[in-house]
Design a protein around this nucleic acid. Sequence first.
DNA 1: ATACTGATTCGACTTTTGGCTAATGGTATC
DNA 2: GATACCATTAGCCAAAAGTCGAATCAGTAT
Lengths: 222, 222
Amino acid sequence: MTESDSSNFIVADDHPLFREALIHAIHNCVPGAVIHEADSLASLYEVVEANPDADLLFLDLHMPGVSGFSALAYMRNNHESLPTVIVSAVDDPAVISRAIQHGASGFIPKSSPIRKIEAAINAILQGEVWLPENIDLGAGGLDNEEARIAAAMSALTPHQFRVLMMLGEGLLNKQIAYQLGVSEATIKAHVTAILRKMQVTNRTQAVLAVQRLNTREPGLVE
Amino acid sequence: MTESDSSNFIVADDHPLFREALIHAIHNCVPGAVIHEADSLASLYEVVEANPDADLLFLDLHMPGVSGFSALAYMRNNHESLPTVIVSAVDDPAVISRAIQHGASGFIPKSSPIRKIEAAINAILQGEVWLPENIDLGAGGLDNEEARIAAAMSALTPHQFRVLMMLGEGLLNKQIAYQLGVSEATIKAHVTAILRKMQVTNRTQAVLAVQRLNTREPGLVE
DNA sequence: ATACTGATTCGACTTTTGGCTAATGGTATC
DNA sequence: GATACCATTAGCCAAAAGTCGAATCAGTAT
């Protein structure tokens, strides 16, 4: 009866087909597994809140509402006890390396054959950090800036994080307020708190900071 | 006496050491070559204006004031007659492919040995499009968005482009005005024109558009 | 010579942003 | 129960952002 008896997983990916495939693989590894799905930042919030005892989160790097390592950085500090595995179409060693440094418990390229994915799931359930073969973790280091931004971002509250992601879409305070069903005054208060925590002076700079956590080529920033 | 008798080149790169090495290689290929240098967007403007009859521009992808393909997109439309070769530390096939699609006349990785660089210069002077070996030009296509943004950006006037790049650094109108030595009202007018041409409604969205021309992993944008 | 186009400049005006204070209620934690 | 933090809102204010119309200037076509 109690869910703590069985394994609880969360699969966050906006591609239904891949979600299904991943769930299938998980079931093969853990027959009685209970799996919860999310296809956006908003639904990820709901599912994570509703299942605080989940054992593992499979997180896509790109979903509606979040992009890059932002969501990972956030999860690492607001739900420390929930290990997070990145599942992504990207398989650049530098991106993989950065994901691990941002606190991911593993990295599964979407291009992996089913067997490999199942092997990855099993390894991670054993507490291992699973990576594709031949990955040099020294490939892409986090520069100081990136680490600082990730730390600042993980200090944000859930609402603040959500608002920050919407700033990242170029929305007005008024639009954000409408979409979240609160007053504009509330959004302003959130934005002020965000700017403070991110140590920037206006929303454009905040958005630029978020962009640095995207999976762009490392080594280009002077 | 007339400069049109000799070959005119422009080398735009913010790394003095590499600039020197490249100039040396050019001299080896074209003994009497006249070479003009730029180490920032501002100086690139000056040099290009001062030498409208230049034969070839060597352009680094990352200089103070510009980043990614923005400068290339701009050059392609405002100085159509000046062929541009990208010189970059990046050698990702997708980046190379995108550079060519943005109108570059060649791509020289900085990691190339001197001989290769000289071979590249000779080939490009013959009118060829020079690429590193084994490059699959199908590697990274421009999505519609990226092509649209590049087109919009190349419709900007020099001043507007300059202002847009400064928006991309998170600067205030006031700061931009001070740096360019004009009134804040002028900058506001430029910004309004930029927003119109880029088909966005505020500066944050304009900055996000510019970011799409950076050399980040392609294929990640949903 | 005239007219037209486009770039640059700027002031006046409106809207949006962002900071500050203050108040309310909820929810943990101690 | 007290304390702390979060979310919410209002109201006020100063600063910044953005729009419009207008003047100037250069180049270009007629």
